[in-house]
């Protein structure tokens, strides 16, 4: 398990990295290396040049009114532990903590996870559920890609070869926000067999007025499930009847492996239950 021969360049800034990528069709960005290196070791990925972006200044978290901007090289561990993230993007914080093990999380980056686009990875699912965006740059300038437009299939995105993800944009959670990432895997720390990311916003009467949800494990990309969960809109609590209805609808309407659809339904019900509970807590704390 040794990678095929490759060259390596550590870049000091984004333009340098873009230039390196543009100059070699077989070049690939490396960030935390936690997905790319195993693929290289098995020779499933054979980049001719590794363009290291760890020093190009892409880490950092800034909150701009109702948007949170996260540098692509921000490590999972930081997302998990940063108090700002906990406040403005609790779904992301919870999801980051579910990735692998601490050793993986201290190396792996949000940009790497999104571009790697593993269909059972947590962060792509969060991006779809939260309706986030990525900001990418190439020699031609920058563009912004919405979550639903980013993922196209198993380990595949709409990113061009010479494009680098600079930032990830997510909405800032409101005062009555509630969210949950629920997943199931046979062992702790494993990639999930199935998972659901869900976030709700509620009005002053406690009614759910907005909902974003996505499921992983069912298809080659995270599946937007907000429509399937529309029954939650307008509800003021996660009643048993509502939860049972959610699971039933999802089990019946989700295509693909029935076992996974079954799990996703159950996990969605749990996510709704927890999102309401957390929204209640957050509202109480805000009051």
């Amino acid at each position: 398990m040794k990678p095929a021969p490759f060259d390596y360049v550590r870049c000091a800034n984004v333009p340098e990295a873009i230039a390196a990528l543009s100059g070699d069709e077989g070049a690939k960005v490396i960030a935390g290396g936690q997905s790319l290196v195993p693929l290289m070791a098995m020779r499933l990925a054979r980049p001719t040049l590794l363009v290291d972006v760890n020093d190009v200044g892409l880490d950092g978290i800034t909150v701009e009114r109702d948007v949170i901007r996260i540098g692509a090289c921000t490590r999972h561990r930081r997302l998990e532990r940063d108090p700002v993230i906990a406040r403005v993007a609790p779904l992301l914080q919870e999801a980051a903590g579910l990735i692998g093990y601490p050793a993986i999380r201290t190396r792996g980056t949000i940009g790497g996870s999104l571009v790697h686009a593993d269909p059972v990875a947590e962060l792509p699912t969060v991006l779809v559920a939260a309706g986030g965006f990525v900001v990418v740059r190439s020699g031609a300038g920058t563009r912004v890609i919405a979550a639903v437009d980013l993922f196209t299939g198993f380990l595949d995105t709409t990113l061009e070869h010479d494009e680098i993800v600079e930032d990830v944009l997510l909405p800032v959670a409101g005062t009555r926000h509630g969210s949950s990432f629920c997943e199931w895997s046979p062992r702790e720390g494993d990639f999930a067999t199935a998972g659901v990311a869900l976030a709700i916003e509620r009005d002053d009467d406690g009614r759910c007025v907005a909902l974003g949800a996505a499921a992983c494990g069912l298809a080659s990309v995270p599946l937007d499930c907000s429509t399937l969960l529309a029954a939650v809109l307008g509800e003021t609590s996660a009643s048993g009847a509502l939860l049972r209805q959610i699971a039933r609808v999802m089990r019946a309407d989700l295509a693909g492996d029935p076992d996974r659809a079954d799990l996703v339904g159950l996990l969605a019900a749990r996510a709704v239950h927890r999102a309401f509970a957390r929204s209640d807590e957050r509202s109480a704390a805000a009051a």
Partner: peptide
């Protein structure tokens, strides 16, 4: 038949 409500609160 799975009980989603019981599962959700576990």
């Amino acid at each position: 038949t799975p009980d989603a409500s019981a599962f959700a609160s576990r």
